[in-house]
Amino acid sequence: MADQMKPGSGPLDYGNRLWLKILFGVIFFMLYVPIITLVAFSFNTDRRGIVWRGFTFDNYVKAWNNSALIEAMVNSLMIALIATIIATVLGAMVALMLWRFRFPFKGAYEAFMGLPIVIPEICMGVALLLFFNETGMMAAVVAMPWPLNLSNIIIAHVAFCFPFVAIVVRSRLVGFNRQLEEASKDLGASEWQTFWKVIVPFMMPGLVAGALLAFTLSLDDFVITFFTSGPETVTFPVKVYSLVRRGVSPEINAASTVLIVITVVATVLAMKLQAPQKSGKG
């Protein structure tokens, strides 16, 4: 019997089953065809974007010259940048606290920190809209000059990003050998020096991964921004939303492609940093 078996046809060798390969093909086809056609048609000369008529960069030039679209993109990047910095600092501090200390009701505190992750986005969005309105923050911020008029959106983004950063950084800290900390203190370093020279360098991959995660989450967010942005402020997803409601156009394809490239690069970087270090690299 055994000699009749081809390689890859063993009872547990599911990876080589034809039906599974076909299924993989179909599902990946369905996952990627919409995105690939979106990217491909950003280079299409046809205005209505249905039939392929020829290769062009015109749509990118048009998107670039569309000042409203560029303004929305700059807003989005600015929000993502500031929100990422604040969220990374807050998330890292919470992660350090959870990693280092035991305290009463720790389980409840962790669940509390996880709330922004589980709560429906739309509920968080409307709650913040109400809060900013009732406290007068909405009216105050709308009158401020750029980039201060983005403050409410940044505050909202930090609130849903930093619990994610805390989770990423904490999972990195779990691998820390606390004897290193003790050794550092034995050798005369202060608590502060130990923190900067021993713990922070160890945390670094987690910090970068957490920051990139926060950056993509912030850049991607539509729902919460939709509610917390004032009538005047537009971010890239909010702008695309209003354009999409009016119909499909190759300009949106071009702008979307730019955003896809940014997020994919950030994600691949984050994954590389989070992956367990190969031996030899330390």
């Binding site: 993989f24 990946f28 996952l31 990627y32 065809v33 919409p34 995105i35 056609t37 979106l38 048609f41 209505r48 974007g49 249905i50 993509t216 850049l219 991607d220 539509f222 997803p237 695309v240 939303y241 999409v244 499909v248 949106i252 979307s256 955003l259 896809i260 997020t263 994919v264 950030a266 994600t267 691949v268 994954m271």
Partner: peptide
């Protein structure tokens, strides 16, 4: 690679993915 292929669309903006679906499904879509 397979894992990356599954996770990657998740990182692409929800709005853009939904928009991509509109282009596929609309009456003059693919």
């Amino acid at each position: 690679l397979l894992l990356l292929l599954v996770v990657l669309p998740f990182w692409i903006n929800l709005l853009i993915r939904t928009y991509a679906l509109i282009a596929v499904f609309r009456s003059q879509g693919y």
